[in-house]
Design a protein around this nucleic acid. Structure first.
Lengths: 226, 226
DNA sequence: GATCCATATATTGCATACAATTTAAATGTT
DNA sequence: AACATTTAAATTGTATGCAATATATGGATC
């Protein structure tokens, strides 16, 4: 992907691949050939292999024995389970954020909203999608529960994947400024409102998906290298 | 550990180690030397390494760069976060189990209770601890949400680890027959009662811990090979 | 032209070898 | 004896090589 200043660790490789998936640069179903990744990242296959097993554990990648690693294509059922989980967990995140957020945390949230606004103005759809996911990951981090943070760090990239599969091609990534409203409610310590906004936000994302129509969306190979 | 009939896969190795941790055969803080594990499982270090990175991602193992892999010693704060997460997730599991459990599932739960009773009668404390954890993992599996199942598959072994660190040495693993009561309430489709029992159950486990006294419990090396 | 089979290529799975680093032991000094 | 310093052993981190498997290619047959 680009020239390695210093040798990348397994985690960093996994993170790079995750970012690529979140930005829809790696579409669901695409095969990840170890050798290609190895030369791309300037490391040996051994490390790539470790990164891929990590990503497989996260569910972002699916391993087919003797056949290789593929970016996961979540089923509609899995998509529903994912949103059910997020509806369960994210209200708790909001509660804890309201309890524990210090001024610096709120500043970080504001800064993130700015980034999102910027990406939206520039029409940088890929960055919008990634940042939308990372907003929820940031909230999870601020909430202070490492287990929930880790869970969200898995669910958000998967959500991006689901959007890639089931969303209408040119839908605006995250409906408008719902993130900003959530942050405002948090800043005002209005728990009920913040939770309600969060749940509606999740509902909007899920409703925008076509989880019923099993459109076998294929990979646009030509667009990949266009 | 024992003779490999067929070559073990990475996740099987991770599973074996997880079981050993759940049964308190591998105490928190102990070092896992790659070479030792490799010869024990009859595979090369490459595979062990992959298994360890997996376990590290789960949090069951902590990787110190250039120094090796150690069974995690969860802090009191992490223990509290873990139980907070379980209190959030397990009621949802109970709800879904009541919704979706078919007769075979209930039979499986009964069978598990029998196993637990047997282990308790035999005074096999290690098996009791492992089975107690696996009861919750079984519920999670029956609940049908893969993400929650995976989460519980991480939290339960960690709970065993926390018990090893913070529980009084000879406390009865899981307080009596609370599992049986939960299963009964589930079988009767009594959601409110089942959730209440589950929450009390978790509370009992957590209350039995001494999360305040930071007793630096060391490893009893002599007992390990006694 | 489609289907089957054989061969060749590409890719994965795994163990091993070696360099880098840490830990333990040995030696010397105060 | 306690402490610092050097030397040796053990262990991790990484790349590479080779066998096993899967995929692709190229006829041969119908």
């Amino acid at each position: 992907m680009d020239a390695p200043i210093t040798k990348l660790g397994v985690e960093q490789i996994a993170e790079r691949i995750t970012d690529a998936v979140m930005e829809h640069r790696l579409p669901p179903g695409i095969k990840l050939v170890e050798e290609k990744l190895a030369s791309a990242f300037g490391v040996s296959r051994t490390k790539i292999r470790q990164a891929l097993t990590l990503l497989a554990k996260e569910g972002l990648v699916t391993l087919h024995p003797n056949r290789g690693a593929f970016v996961t294509r979540p089923s509609a059922a899995e998509a529903r389970d994912l949103f059910a989980t997020r509806r369960l967990v994210e209200p708790e995140i909001v509660r804890n954020v309201i309890k524990r957020a210090c001024p610096e945390d709120l500043a970080r949230l504001s800064a993130h909203l700015e980034e999102e606004a910027e990406a939206r103005q520039q029409g940088d759809r890929r960055r919008i999608i990634r940042l939308s996911g990372q907003f929820h990951m940031l909230l999870a981090r601020i909430s202070g529960n490492g287990f929930i943070e880790k869970l969200m760090a898995e669910l958000c990239p998967l959500t991006c994947l689901i959007i890639a599969l089931y969303d209408e091609p040119q839908t605006p990534a995250c409906p408008e400024d719902e993130h900003r409203e959530i942050v405002e409610a948090i800043a005002q310590r209005d728990e009920a409102r913040a939770i309600s906004l969060m749940l509606h936000h999740l509902q909007h994302i899920e409703q925008a998906l076509h989880l019923d129509s099993p459109k076998t969306r294929d990979i646009h190979w030509e667009a990949l290298y266009g």
